[in-house]
Design a protein around this nucleic acid. Structure first.
Lengths: 117, 117
DNA sequence: CCCGATCGTTACGGACCCGTATCATTATCC
DNA sequence: GGATAATGATACGGGTCCGTAACGATCGGG
């Protein structure tokens, strides 16, 4: 049972959620940061810099910088892997889980308001 | 008939579309720019810098800079209002309409792939 | 006319991000 | 043990964006 949505609905939903995000201002995440954050919170751990870079098709410094920024915001944490100390394991945080949950509720709520057309 | 979508579906859709946008790379628009672009293409003209700034809850220079960037990408055009030459009317372009249409198709397609959960 | 109000733009200092290249640390394999 | 590979972080030069403040252009009322 696929999720049926019309192009005009998709656009209005996309616009409304982005408007909310901009107006709230708290989540100043770029498209890349959003993709990284949701990957961390939706895909099965463990997550590494290299793995995320491969999934997104970007270079490793992009991931490192994004983790710096999101770490400052308290959305993720880094921890060295004790079994292979070259690796860094990205971990979820309570604040990050809350932010993701709020985004989900925002999309669901705005979708509910999308009328017929 | 509202659009029914579950939180987990919303998150997976949000992640997948952002992944596509990042991987394609062509549309390097921030959340603000996306909101501006969709407002121009979904809401009734005419659009002015002041009006967009009010709708998004941001300052005017933000709109001016976003229009500069999107203008360079060919997504919008500016034209002085002949009746009140202080105003600038933001106009749509073929390239912009195509980009918006492609975003809509992307969301629709990814939504269709969102299975049950 | 001229003065105030309104419009969009620009200037400035600071912050962030990018891609490439390089680095320090750690593991692996002979 | 020493050479090699792999991982994540950092340096650098260039670009974009931000918020505040100021600016030139234009309208409108007295």
């Amino acid at each position: 049972m696929p999720l049926e949505i019309r192009p005009s609905q998709a656009l209005r939903l996309w616009r409304q959620v982005h408007l909310d995000l901009v107006r709230d201002g708290d989540s100043d995440l770029s498209a890349r940061q959003t993709a990284i954050l949701l990957t961390i919170y939706l895909e099965l751990p463990p997550h590494t810099v290299r793995g995320l870079a491969a999934q997104l098709g970007v270079t490793k410094p992009v991931i490192t910088r994004a983790l710096d920024t999101m770490g400052k915001l308290g959305l993720v944490t880094r921890k060295r892997d004790d079994f292979d100390r070259r690796n860094v394991v990205i971990q979820r945080t309570v604040a990050g889980a809350l932010a993701v949950e709020r985004l989900a509720d925002l999309v669901v709520e705005r979708a509910r308001e999308m009328g017929g057309s």
